[in-house]
Design a protein around this nucleic acid. Structure first.
Length: 835
RNA sequence: GCCGAAGUGGUGGAACUGGUAGACGCGCUGGCUUCAGGAGCCAGUGGGCGCAAGCUCGUGGGGGUUCGAGUCCCCCCUUCGGCACCA
């Protein structure tokens, strides 16, 4: 090391360098994106954060840094990169915090945002701050409200009184996606069922398309799989069971061929059930309706009325936890009977809470012989169990000790009349066809996905833009009147009424009906935060435009998003809603594409010292402290080095020093680099291998191995305390730039460059230099490695064999003539000797 | 229960389409340098046996395919994530 490297001036002072370059970037507009004229647009997006009072979480920074590296790399490859940032600042999270500290979120949020912006700037992200947005800005939520109106126009937004998930703690409705194991995902309170008037989006209309498109998306497999599970497609059949007065028909061998007119002595009441096993219809020995099924009222007999009413009252009050935890079967008989359309047998109709009103038709045909839940129920209440499917070593009389649910090929039908002997797969189709001929069934596809409830009885969100008028009914707010501004409300504490705090602000909600001019009343619910985030990526290029939600020309140029990186916790919430909204706008002719994110990668999560970070554990990493101590460049690079990006990893305080040491050595190498003389060919070979490796790894998000490759090169560059050459050092600075942008800029400038390193291209590698001069081949005898040989990469089997036999250490294992030789060029030679 | 991901040194993690397991970093050991160091540099570092050359075992467990298996196939165990009375 030369003495000059020790002078104060030339110390690697990360803080000073980072301050200098952040100011420089701001002054020069280095991170500005020319959205109108920029060529080769590349839109790289990070999931915008919720600006919490605690400030930026290391997880946020992990996500953003990964995205930033990708963006900077694309820019070095000549793209005009757009890397915007915004804040998802509406919602219960912010509101609850505001309530806790007793400050209106309208005051609180801007403060949090200022803090976030400060922290984000310190991290050295390549963000064009001119396009920053916040979902709480009336200029943003004006268009969120506009979006609601677009869905309404297309019949995709509707209001209904429905049983919804009610969080008694947050005092609001939750979307299904926000209920985890029966508790509120936010506060953990047991979620209750409530009947409220709510606004819904008809996302179920898009279930099929949302599912099918997944096959063509370049997304993390785990995310696609989560969406598939969530959408939950089931193929099956709807089967009609006709209601009958059992007493009248008891004993009469009524079968399906009985004409409809003969059977309709009583008003025919069809009970439609959904099943994925239409092949088992002959084994349906009773029906079960969900307790809240609308037909229950009508079919219940006077004798059973009391017990049915009791049961319905009991299950209605039950919270979801109780329902899910105790899988014990309960239910009551309605007194009514239906006719099994396959065999004409009268079968009793029960109600039970194991049947869910929200799925299928809210009614099932129970086949206890072949469904575990039905079996359990039948056992509990002594209902008949009939075998209609038999396995390979069974027949129609083999007793059932439990439900036989196997439907794989040898399983075939028994006790099923003309369908006996058919394998299950064939029987399904045949029975559905037969039922369809008699108008008693049809093939249907069912989805688990529910419509999206967007109403929230809270304060901190965009008011849903409708007005209720006694004369005109529901009237959408005219688009020209948007935004419907959220008023400043002193008391925004929600209560148990199920009515939003906005309903207390009479001056706000009393308005003229836009249609008739009479007295009207605003909708007082606000919309779900997930609606805000379902379209923000469309807004960024047009942020600041007040005339449109998203400019068609800019949208065409920048969207869909080229690369989206975010957490998998949004696999079924944000990422599904965004796809839905994009599809709707596409169908409305407003977007030329119907998927918003061409490529999505779920990043991993960071734990610390093997444990999840949490305030109570006291192991939360505060980015500010680490940036203070090690510099943003070292912190960024360490975050990317601690594990595979898509898996996350373990943050260990000690680990960061290794990365900082690497940057220190880079610094010294660059300052010492010689201009005179020639570069070392062996070092250049390693350099070109490194360029190749880093160039390939960054697009794959294999950041940890890219950094490892650069460290490896550093070890070669400085081996034996040699003084590196400029030609050996300069390209390395370019490789490091996406990870450690400040120090790279500084060194780049010291190398005499005038423009930002990010506009000076990416080093290319010379394949010939990157290739090895000599390769080390493993030599095995009978599959055991006995030594290595150095040969030219293109050495033939004969060359390699000769070289191997020349090595005594190897040759001594070759005790006879080789029976076989396996040769993998440049890699391995295996001499097989028979003994 | 269903779906997805994953089990590799003391530790975080590498390993291309089956081809020298443990790259790179942390830690540790020894040495050099230093007034000093939570600094820098050099060397070593999977286990066992051996003075050594070397031998041998080794990627959660058990089988298998192969000249050759961390990687492929079958069975099992464990961890993490998602869904879950979804008919």
């Amino acid at each position: 090391m030369t003495e000059s490297a020790h002078t104060a001036l030339d110390l690697y002072d990360a803080a000073a360098i980072e301050r200098k370059w952040q100011a420089r970037w701001e002054r020069d507009g280095t991170n500005h994106t020319d959205v109108d004229a920029g060529v080769r647009p590349y839109y790289t997006l990070m999931m915008f954060p919720y600006p919490s009072a605690e400030g930026l979480h290391v997880g946020n920074l992990f996500a953003f840094t990964g995205n930033d590296i990708h963006g900077r790399y694309q820019r070095q490859h000549g793209h005009t990169v757009f890397e915007p940032m915004g804040y998802d600042a509406f919602g219960i999270h912010s509101e609850n915090y505001a309530l806790k500290v007793g400050v209106n979120p309208m005051e609180l949020i801007p403060r949090n945002i200022d803090n976030f912006r400060r922290q984000l700037k310190r991290a050295g992200l390549m963000i064009d701050w001119r396009y920053e947005l916040s979902t709480t800005d009336p200029r943003y939520y004006k268009w969120t409200q506009w979006l609601i109106l677009q869905l309404y126009k297309r019949g995709l937004a509707y209001k209904k009184r429905a049983a919804v998930n009610w969080c008694p703690n947050d005092k609001t409705v939750l979307a299904n996606e926000q209920v985890i194991n029966g508790v509120c995902e936010r506060c953990g309170a047991k979620v209750e069922q409530r009947l409220l008037e709510q606004w819904f989006f008809r996302i179920t209309d898009y279930a099929g398309r949302l599912l099918e498109n997944l096959d063509h998306l370049d997304w993390s497999e785990s995310t696609k799989s989560a969406q598939r599970n969530w959408i939950g497609r089931s193929e099956g059949a709807e089967i009609v069971f006709r209601l009958h007065d059992y007493l009248e028909f008891a004993g009469a061998a009524t079968v399906m061929r009985t004409s409809t007119s003969e059977m309709s002595a009583l008003p025919p009441t069809d009970i439609r059930v959904f099943t994925t096993r239409p092949d088992t219809v002959f084994g349906a020995t009773y029906l079960v309706l969900a307790p809240e099924h609308p037909l229950v009222e009508r079919i219940t007999t006077d004798e059973e009325r009391t017990s049915v009413d009791d049961y319905r009252a009991r299950t209605a009050r039950q919270d979801l936890v109780a329902r899910k935890v105790t899988k014990e079967k309960t239910g009551v008989f309605t007194g009514a009977y239906a006719m099994n359309p396959a065999n004409g047998q009268p079968i009793p109709i029960w109600i039970a809470d194991y049947v869910l009103m929200e799925y299928g038709t809210g009614a099932i045909m129970a086949v206890p012989g072949h469904d575990e839940r039905d079996f359990e129920f039948a056992k509990t209440f002594g209902l008949p169990i009939v075998r209609v499917v038999a396995g390979p070593r069974e027949n129609e009389r083999t007793p059932l000790t439990g439900a036989y649910t196997d439907s794989e090929d040898p399983a075939q039908l028994v006790n099923s009349g003309r369908f006996n002997g058919l394998v299950v797969s064939k029987a399904k189709a045949a029975i559905v066809e037969w039922l369809a001929e008699h108008d008693r069934g049809r093939a249907v596809v069912n989805y688990r996905l529910h419509d999206w409830c967007i109403s929230r009885q809270r304060y901190w969100g965009p008011p849903i833009p409708f007005i209720y008028c006694d004369k005109c009914g529901v009237v959408p707010v005219p688009e020209s009147d948007l935004p419907v501004k959220l008023p400043i409300v002193e008391d925004f504490q929600p209560d148990d009424s199920g009515i939003s705090p906005l309903a207390r602000v009479e001056s706000w909600y009393r308005v003229k009906c836009p249609s008739c001019g009479g007295q009207g009343r605003r909708e007082t619910d606000v919309s779900d935060t997930f609606l805000d985030s379902s379209w923000y990526y469309l807004r960024y290029p047009s942020a600041g435009r007040d005339d449109v939600a998203f400019d068609p020309v800019l949208t065409d140029k920048w969207l869909p998003v080229d690369s989206y990186i975010g957490g998998n916790e949004h696999a079924v919430l944000h990422l599904l809603y965004s796809r839905f909204v994009t599809m709707v706008l596409h169908d409305a002719g407003m977007l030329p594409f119907d998927e918003p994110f061409v490529k999505f990668r779920a990043h991993g999560t960071i734990v610390r010292d093997g444990a999840k970070m949490s305030k109570s554990r006291g192991n939360v990493v505060n980015p500010d402290e680490y940036i203070e101590e090690w510099g943003a460049d070292a912190f960024r690079t360490y975050l990317m080095f601690l594990g595979p990006y898509e898996e996350g990893g373990d943050f260990q305080d000690r680990g960061i020093s290794g990365v900082r040491r690497f940057l220190d050595r880079l610094w010294v190498s660059a300052l010492e680099a010689q201009r005179s003389g020639a570069a070392d060919v062996a070092v250049l070979r390693k350099l070109h291998k490194t360029i190749r490796k880093v160039t390939e790894d960054i697009p794959k998000l294999s950041y940890n191995t890219a950094i490892a490759a650069m460290m490896e090169y550093m070890n070669v560059l400085r081996a034996g305390e040699r003084t590196p050459h400029v030609a050996e050092t300069e390209p390395l600075i370019q490789l490091v730039a996406p990870f450690a942008p400040h120090v790279a800029e500084e060194l780049w400038e010291r190398f005499g460059h005038k423009r930002t390193i990010f506009d000076c291209g990416w080093p290319s590698f010379d394949p010939e230099l990157a290739a090895d001069e000599l390769v080390t081949m493993a030599v095995q005898v009978n599959g055991k490695t006995r030594g290595t040989i150095q040969v030219a990469p293109e050495a033939t089997q004969e060359d390699a064999l000769a070289a191997a036999m020349a090595e005594l250490a190897i040759a001594r294992f070759v005790t006879a003539d080789p029976a076989r030789v396996i040769f993998v060029k440049g890699r391995l030679l295996n001499i097989v000797v028979k003994d």
